[in-house]
Amino acid sequence: MAKFGRSVVLILALILIVVIITNTAIGSTLISPLITAKILLANFFPVEHTWLDKHETIIIGVRLPRVLLAAFVGGALSTAGCAMQGLLKNPMADPYIIGMSSGAALGASLGFVLMLPVHLMSFMLAVLAIFVVYNISKVGGKVPVDTLLLSGIAIGSLLSAITSMIIFLAQSPHKIIFWIMGGLWNASWEELRITSVMIIFGVLVLYRYAWKLNVMLLGEEEAHYLGVDIEHVKRYVLVFSALVTAAAVSVSGIIGFVGLIIPHIMRILVGPDHRILFPASTLMGAIFLVLCDTFSRTIIAPNELPVGVVTAMFGAPFFIYLLRKRRNSLYA
């Protein structure tokens, strides 16, 4: 493991902590980062009580769960994107491209229309979409990558069409549309608890496949010769990418861009070794979404921009800059 890579991961971890503290401090009520840090630390250590109780309520009750949720969602989407790109050896791959987002959106729309729990419905349909896509692309016990991508796009279009129909027929379509645009305004500790457990579990499982994903970059046949059970890796990486993405999407709606672009940016910075690339992507995804979310909730306060709009508006130009700077292609 390269020393450079390790120090990048360490630096990103420190940046994430600073970003979480400072972004919890930012909002309509002015609370200094120092006081914010004290309030946060008071949960773990005895700290002299020098702040207003209402500030503590704002920090702990409102802002912190939102900032943490943004970190978890960003980390989850980015890790899953990283896993999918490595697995499918395709720079266009992210958890959305194989039908997850369409499944989640349909689940949410059904939830709104049929008065069912929206999070649960979107989670279930996202997982169901992956399951259907995986089984459609299965040919004689194997899942060829191109078939997987194509059937993902096909199923995705089908589900999107159904969602459009529901929006068209719905009595209050704006709710569905807002959900699809993606946002973290519903953040609460309860949501955070369920989501974070699923995301931490899924991400840690994906980390365990880092070495095998590295070997699979050499090609499926080479990986087979090196003793990697390719179909097993495909199945598990797909399932756990789906799990963390569904957990994220069910609370945040569809936030584009993070899962696709952050892993690319990190690959340009730290190289293709998933042992480094995975944690670097997770941390960078978390940092990125926390920053974007703060921007989206403050820029036109008291209103909010959908965070998906912000992620694309900041991320795309930066990514284009990196892409131009680097001459050779990402995947040959």
Binding site: N214, V215, G227, P272
Partner: peptide
């Protein structure tokens, strides 16, 4: 993919 020679050889231990 930009792996080092050492990493590629270590993949033999998979």
């Amino acid at each position: 993919f930009e792996f080092s020679v050492e990493d590629i050889v270590l993949m033999g231990r998979t």
